[in-house]
Amino acid sequence: MDSTLQTKERRHADKPGPMCGGWKTQLACAAALCVGVTPAAAIDVNSSDYLPAAPGTNLLLFYSQYADRSEYVSSSGVVISADTGLSSYVNIFRYVHYFDVGGFTVAPQVLVPAGTLYDAKLGGVNLGSAAGFGDPIFAMPVWLVNNSATQTYVGLTPYLFVPLGQYDAGSPLNMGENRWKLDLQAGWYQGLGNGFALQLTADVTWYGVNNEAGAGRQSLAQNNTYQIQAWLSYSLSKTWSVAAGYAKLWGGTEYLDGIQTGSATERDQIRLELSTFVTPTFQVLGQVQRDFNTSGGFPEDFRGTVRVMQVF
Results as ranks from 00 to 15, higher is better:
Y234N: 04
R217A: 14
S263M: 11
G252P: 03
E177D: 11
S237M: 04
A230M: 13
S148T: 12
D183L: 00
A247L: 13
Y167H: 04
A247W: 08
W206A: 12
A149K: 13
Y255S: 06
L184V: 14
S263R: 03
G193S: 10
N178E: 13
L144I: 06
A186R: 04
S148N: 10
G170N: 08
D183E: 10
S241D: 15
E177H: 04
F196V: 08
D268F: 07
G216V: 12
D268W: 08
L160W: 14
N194V: 02
T239S: 15
W240M: 12
L200R: 06
F161I: 10
K181S: 13
D183R: 00
D168L: 01
E254N: 09
G193C: 04
D257V: 01
G176V: 02
A221P: 05
Y153I: 00
G170E: 11
F161S: 08
G214F: 15
G155Q: 00
N224E: 14
Y234S: 04
E254D: 11
N146V: 03
P158E: 00
M175P: 02
V204D: 08
N174Q: 09
W240I: 11
L220G: 01
K181A: 07
L232V: 14
Y159Q: 00
Q190C: 08
N146C: 09
T150P: 07
G170I: 02
V162T: 09
V204L: 11
G170T: 04
L160T: 07
G191C: 03
Y167V: 02
K181Y: 03
Q229T: 12
N147A: 09
A202F: 15
L184P: 03
Y226C: 02
R267Y: 14
W180F: 15
Y226P: 01
G193N: 11
W188N: 00
V142C: 09
N224C: 06
L156E: 00
N146F: 05
Y167T: 03
A244V: 15
Q229R: 03
S148E: 14
T157I: 05
W188K: 03
Q222H: 07
A186E: 08
L156F: 15
Q151C: 06
P163N: 06
G214L: 12
Y226D: 07
T261V: 07
A243Q: 00
A243I: 05
S148G: 09
Y226T: 08
N211C: 09
T265N: 14
G262P: 04
Q190F: 13
T239G: 05
V142Y: 11
Q269P: 01
N178S: 11
N146R: 10
L156G: 01
Q190P: 04
Y226M: 04
A244N: 08
V209K: 15
G208D: 14
R179F: 01
Q227P: 02
P158C: 06
T239M: 12
L200P: 02
M175L: 15
M140I: 10
G216C: 13
S171Q: 13
Q218A: 04
L200T: 11
G195H: 12
Q229C: 07
